[in-house]
């Protein structure tokens, strides 16, 4: 628990990004948050497409992914991440306003680990975020377990 966990947030709306950060930080866990504003940027950071040596590649402990993103939507980003060896095992949680059944179905089908429909009330939203962080970050730090093998 000495390590600071890294959470990667993909969210296009700066207000939402700010509020989600707030919710994450308020969980009280030692967490650092990095973010991207659209699909291609997220992929660049996670897969290191910008730095061919691979040195700049970011390996977060948990990813929060919005579905409605400009240029490349969340489901497409999810598919690409699950298709690549380096990100295949990362825990990814869909964080979205949509409660459409088809969205839930496609997200799980493409391999997300969890699906959170953002409640309108901020307190309940923060609670959902806390619960997700506690579950996935603690799980990853159990002794004798490598990152992401819980898949």
């Amino acid at each position: 628990m000495d390590n600071i966990s890294l959470i990667f947030l993909v969210e296009d709306n700066p207000d939402d990004e700010l509020l989600t950060r707030r919710a994450i930080i308020s969980s009280g866990l030692p967490i650092r948050v990095e973010s991207a504003v659209d699909g291609p940027q997220a992929l660049e950071i996670l897969l290191g497409a910008a730095a061919p040596q691979g040195s700049a590649r970011l390996t977060p402990d948990l990813i929060f992914l919005d579905l409605k993103l400009p240029r490349l939507n969340g489901l497409e980003v999810l598919s690409i991440l699950r298709g690549r060896a380096e990100t295949r095992l990362l825990p990814i949680i869909i964080l979205t306003s949509s409660a459409e059944k088809s969205d839930v179905y496609h997200a799980y089908e493409r391999g997300c680990n969890s699906y959170i429909q953002k409640p309108v009330g901020f307190e309940r939203f923060a609670q959902s975020i806390h619960a997700a962080c506690h579950y996935w970050l603690r799980l990853n730090q159990m002794p004798g377990q490598n990152k992401g093998t819980t898949l």
Binding site: S97, S98, F122, F125
Partner: peptide
């Protein structure tokens, strides 16, 4: 109705979030 479900809710949540902040 699909966009309503997504887009109308998002600003509401922001309002609530900033009030809380």
């Amino acid at each position: 109705s699909y966009s309503v479900s997504h887009d109308l809710r998002a600003p509401l949540r922001r309002i609530d979030g900033f009030c809380q902040a």
